[in-house]
Design a binder for these strands. Structure first.
Lengths: 130, 130
DNA sequence: TTGACATATTCCCATATGAGCATGCATTAT
DNA sequence: ATAATGCATGCTCATATGGGAATATGTCAA
């Protein structure tokens, strides 16, 4: 029997979409490639990064399937694979109900305060709603 | 004049919500704390992590405002601050139009193929839509 | 005051990167 | 064939963590 994981000192990054997107430059690249495909040189120019850095970021994005590549002569045309961002969207969406809840409570409290003492600073006593 | 950034060898992590959420354990904690507040001990039990690890993850989440704390005696009650997740939701949402586009194109192609040769494997020649 | 509890911090270690530089690899031009 | 062009990789360095163990802090109980 072989131990595949002896000790994971630090969680593997760049192994999933969440990690790939955590890097600001990569988010920048994803936005840049969202509308239409571009060759690496264009990305280098657009981001101001040097070519190797761009290639490496593209490598990470490629591995997690956040971009698609297409070869054309000696160029490579990259493009954002928007579908791969959907899981992130859905994960964040699971919290939507909670922030809506928060907003509603804030609003209700504001209105209640308004009713008690119109145009006066709030004097928080206790909150019966909790 | 002072140089604030001498050399950033690696982009600062745990400095924004994107990075905080990139860590699986922290996502797990956020979900756990989304519904209602819990004390650290409960999080430790729920996640199976040891207490210091949990405290450290909570520290990161606290710094980027993804959780709120409330002291109660010798306990600390944590709770997810869902509102802080909204920016992530909105970022991912900017890509929604693109993945919808993709889905539509896939669907159209499928229907077009269906019309040409009902129930036959697709023979991709060229794509006039691009 | 002395302890027991609940958490947060600090230290040390192994590992993962990101950036910069140099180099390897195709593919096209001459 | 040879050079030039466009990218991908490899290597080194500095730094950021995450996990685990030990320790510090703060609060309530006896």
């Amino acid at each position: 029997m072989s131990m595949h994981y002896v000790s994971v000192a630090r969680a593997r990054t760049t192994s999933d979409a969440f990690n790939a997107v955590a890097e600001p430059r990569r988010r920048q690249i994803l936005l840049y490639l969202a509308h239409d495909e571009r060759q690496v040189g264009e990305i280098v120019e657009a981001t101001g990064l040097n070519q190797p850095s761009v290639s490496k970021h593209l490598g990470v994005l490629r591995r997690v399937n956040l971009v698609r590549v297409r070869r054309n002569g000696r160029h490579r045309l990259y493009r954002t694979n928007a579908a791969a961002i959907r899981p992130l969207h859905e994960w964040t969406q699971t919290f939507e109900q909670y922030w809506r809840h928060q907003l509603i409570r804030v609003k209700e409290r504001a209105e209640a305060a308004m009713k008690r003492e119109p145009s006066a600073s709030d004097s928080p006593r206790f909150d019966p709603s909790r």
